[in-house]
């Protein structure tokens, strides 16, 4: 069953001059149709300005479509009655961890969502404990977020969403401001939530290494979905990706280069080092 669906979704940003008069519209998302099944790990790729973040904000009912509509668990996001229900079902993690942590102690921040939902005190504590343990941040529950690393802060932010018991988590470039080890932490956490807890994950990113394990990838450019498929299918279309300001993992690029230069028996869209080494061993003997 689809947890998130968009139907002919379009969104215009209103441009204003200094006096606040409307001077025109900029189309940020144009006629997007996509459907995400429960339990999937979805990646949305796109360069800067491709409209991927605008799309994400629609799923959480922060933005409303100019045209078309978005369904979360069968409910329209544009209907005011559903808004809190939708925000609870489809939680959102943002790019900058400093700007989304509200509490000054880790556990208080994680409890913020459940408090807003009106959950009884005892249950809030249970949810906070469960969420922090799932994200491996339980031992930091009494810490000030200021003293945590970027990756840890981002895991606290994810725990804050997990404590609301969402069915789906949208992560809007959660790794863009992190260093490589923080990035790995966050992606590992996202995959674990998907594998173990069965939470649907929609990961928005421009780091290609992060989407290798996704069930399905949508590639956006200029507000439209330009490509979709499994990571393997997407990564075998290097030239198209480059047009969309994107890249492929270094392994995939090496395989592509080798293929262009004569090793034609290599398959397309190689994703990992092992695959490449195996493929070479299988098809080419030692000179």
């Amino acid at each position: 069953m689809a947890i998130v669906e968009t139907h002919n979704l379009s969104f215009d940003y209103i441009r204003r001059d200094d006096e606040g008069n409307v001077t025109g519209f900029t189309r940020a998302v144009n006629d997007v149709n996509l459907s995400v099944e429960k339990g999937q790990f979805i990646a949305i790729l796109g360069g800067n300005g491709s409209g991927k973040s605008t799309l994400a904000k629609h799923i959480n009912a922060i933005l409303y479509p100019t045209e078309g509509y978005v369904l979360v668990d069968g409910k329209r996001t544009s209907e005011a009655d559903h808004i809190w229900d939708i925000r609870q079902k489809a939680g959102m993690v943002f790019q900058n961890p400093d700007n989304q942590i509200i509490g000054s102690i880790v556990e208080e921040d994680v409890g913020f969502g459940p408090e807003n939902m009106g959950i009884p005190t005892k249950e809030i504590w249970e949810r906070v404990e469960e969420a922090l343990k799932t994200l491996g941040m339980w031992e930091y529950r009494k810490h000030s977020p200021m003293r945590l690393s970027g990756g840890q802060k981002q895991r606290v932010a994810i725990a804050g969403v997990v404590a609301m018991h969402p069915q789906c988590i949208i992560m809007d470039e959660p790794t863009a401001m992190l260093d490589p080890s923080g990035r790995k932490d966050v992606i590992r956490a996202a995959r674990a939530l998907n594998d173990v807890e069965g939470v649907t994950i929609i990961l928005i990113t421009h780091y290609m290494e992060e989407v290798i394990y996704a069930d399905k990838v949508f590639v956006m450019g200029k507000g439209e979905v330009r490509m979709s498929g499994t990571p393997r299918e997407i990564f075998s279309r290097i030239d198209e990706l480059e047009e969309l300001r994107l890249d492929v993992p270094q392994v995939t690029r090496l395989a592509h280069e080798l293929k262009l230069r004569g090793m034609t028996m290599l398959p397309d869209g190689i994703l990992t080092e092992e695959e490449l080494v195996d493929a070479i061993c299988r098809s080419y003997s030692i000179m």
């Binding site: 925000r87 959102m92 943002f94 900058n96 509200i102 913020f112 807003n116």
Partner: peptide, 13 residues
């Protein structure tokens, strides 16, 4: 602005 969005998305009302 970011914080307001983050709070709203966590059902703050």
């Amino acid at each position: 602005n970011d914080l307001a969005l983050a709070m709203e998305s966590r059902c703050y009302h």
